[in-house]
Nucleic acid binder design. Sequence first.
RNA 1: GGGUGAUUAGCUCAGUUGGCUAGAGCACUUCUCUUACAAAGAAGGGGUCACUGGUUCGAGUCCAGUAUCACCCACCA
Length: 877
Amino acid sequence: MKELPKIYQPQEVENEIYARWEQGGFFNPDNINSEEKYCNILPPPNANGELHIGHASGYTVMDIFGRYHRMKGEKTLLLPGKDHAGIQTQVVFEKKLKTKTGKTRQEIGRQEFYKKTYEFCLDRADYMRSQEKKIGISADWSREKFTLDPDVLKSALETFVKMHEDGLIYKGKRIINWCPRCATALSDVEVLHKDSPGKLYFIKYPLENLQANFITVATTRPETMLGDTAIAVNPKDVRFAKLVGENAILPLQNRPIPIIADQRIDLAFGTGAVKITPAHDPLDWQIGKDHKLEEIQIIDEKALITEFGGKYAGMTTHEARQEIVSDLEKLGLLEKIEEFSHAVSICERCKTTIEPLTSKQWFINVDAENYSLKEQAKKAIEENLIEIFPSNLKKILIDWFGNMRDWCISRQIWWGPQFPVWYCDKCGQEKYIVSLEKPTSCPHCGGKNLTQDENTFDTWFTSGQWAHTTLKSHGNDFEDFYPSDMMVMGRDLLFFWSSRMIMMSLYATGKVPFNNLFFTGLVLDKEGHKFSKSRGNGIDPLTVIDKFGADALRMSLIMDSAPGQNSRLYEEKIETFRNFANKLWNISRYCLTQEGFELVEKISEEEIKTPADKWILYKLHLLIEDTERLFNGKQISVVADVLKTFTWNDFADWYVEFNKIEKSQKVLGYVLDKILRLWHPFMPFITEHIWTLAQQEKLLMISTWPTSLSNNATLLDGWQYVENFKAVITTIRNVRTENKIELDKKISIVINSDNKDFSNMIKSEFQEEIIKHLKTGADLISYNQPELELGNYIKRTAGAYTIFVNLEGAIDTEKEKIKAEKEIANLENFIAGLSGRLSNQEFVSKAPAQVINQQKETLAKKQAELAELKKHLESLS
RNA sequence: GGGUGAUUAGCUCAGUUGGCUAGAGCACUUCUCUUACAAAGAAGGGGUCACUGGUUCGAGUCCAGUAUCACCCACCA
């Protein structure tokens, strides 16, 4: 038989196995013949860096489901891709450009910058693809997509055109989130709120007609007062009731501004009077609209004070604030300054403070008359057209849609697709033409000089359509696979991505993008911190794979965690799964080196010979049923857990040991065959490797998924016997350890029982061999001798049997008495509880019969045990 | 301000439909290099399932509340 190394070396086989899978061609669903289909569109990572452990975590989940469904015979597509990741990639590449060539993007120009960034992304995509393969992802690389691939992009832009026709798109001057560093508008979800200590400034505004009096307002951003166009108070506020309709004089600017009433003003906050700066605050903007106030932009896109800021023009907002506060103080208009902690808006990408300002941008009306994106999405979730794991995120998503405001989709960056919008130099910016292709002439005036809108799309506009644009770009894939079965993503993408995909795909296709939405938690380090560059605690998936193998990495990413819960990753944890892989290797190594061993797909009744065979097959039968149920509930970590228990604690610890004495090679081959299949989705490399060593024909990857044995009671009758038998062995070992008896010292055993299958045991020489060999040190075994000199023996209950171990007078009777007394107390306690329950009329009448019977059986068993123990204690004294 | 999650062994975490005396890995104690495996095997110690009530014949599991921690959302200037 083959020479197999004692220790599994994943590094030596993984690459070769992956190459064989690829050559096999079965990553491509076109090569699988089946009516049943399964599709999982993989989230495209940002093509500007490398894969991190979070990607590996999500990919592992997707690949487990993909491989499971493929083995179930379904035409399975895992569709891979990469995202151009607008702002983030631009930031990354600009830095790279600066370091490498010392140039800025402005110095090389828009076209050149775009070209170079594109090349950079393709290069990163190549590298990341190689990483994905290392993890073992069984994706169809022939279908790999990039968000800027012409066909994918065209499909996404067509949606823009359709939306425009349907009145869902508008261009308008509205207040938006502006990042001065990125120099672009951002959508609401790209803005984070960070609580930070600040100050609340109380400023006195003189009243126009009552020179001696003031109205005091409170603000955290005094510099914005330069653009104030009103003061607002709550209409119910009696303090200010008579001032409404009057004018105040805006200090420093010396402009009269009206005092207005608006119910959105909180009476309890500050002074109850609020300065209104429509151009630089979202609420003020809304109030300004409603009261038809003038908007004065006093902060520009570089966060500098504009010409409308008078003497402060050209200052940064920070400088202006200091100057203004100091000037107000000199004028005696600064009433007081209070310490005040409030939420500051910052850019999600670069953490720069956001300046709200009014700007002309493109928006999606998410609640348009013709079609409400947000209502449709909400409805789809409410009606469970998409099942969400974990389910608590369902409500969060519904609420989010409920509060969603119009989505700003234009960005002033260079990296990303430009709007398919054209302007004629004669007609100007107001009369635009929406068209995928550049029009030959202006439809309004016939002018030939047309230029394209310079804005680029929010990256989530294109990735938000990924679920259908990818499939539409390849043959009949859309018809075959849409909607996909499952989408897996980190829960940090809940609002960014899952929400947009649901809205956009519903709109573009009329159907939900996927039937199941599965969120993974964050992968944290050992101390529970996020992995981050600044913390330097990153774990590189490739390093882990190199050290422990891809299977160990995969297992450590999905085990011990529930869907949507964060989990921690650290070396010791990965090690335990490396160890498990090695265990599986050695189990297989034992099997493969057995004379006449082969993997067996099907087993016949004649081949099931021993009680141990029945026992392991029964356990296997339960395992397969559990696996099926748990996979349906998407509980993959529990699947891996029950598989591990079976493999290690049932098969390796007991069945393999039995097999050393009592050969039943068909069953051994049958069970290992099932173990390899069941483990394959989780640990594809090692299982495929062992499979190959055991047989040469086809790949494990496309072998069929095990189904449970027909529950033939007579076929497997007698399996319980082995549980009793195991108890005998464990008890003997226990007695031995307790009494510190060396293993090489032989002892004699008496086993008593009136159990019906006990006669089988007496007849079986194999059983006796097994007891002797399974580390019990038992030498002489005799049966059914009720009258024993108990002083010489230690008596124990083992399952349905009573066993006596002869220690030849070496018993520490005091110790044994204490132990027996303790055990008796414990048992009496338990029996009292149990019989109490059984005599409770309510329990007996209401609990299911099965539960009652079970407890009755247990009670009888425990009472018998107690009686034996009491006799034992008596004999000891 | 609103919301979500967590709280189970020394540590990290599972726990499926509510059902027998609550599990795993690591760590710990003792023993063993027994021809699949010391990356292992054998035996063991370690728990008021955060707290308080409720529902139920029966609660780690369902409900209400409390506490602590973590995270998310938010136009309180």
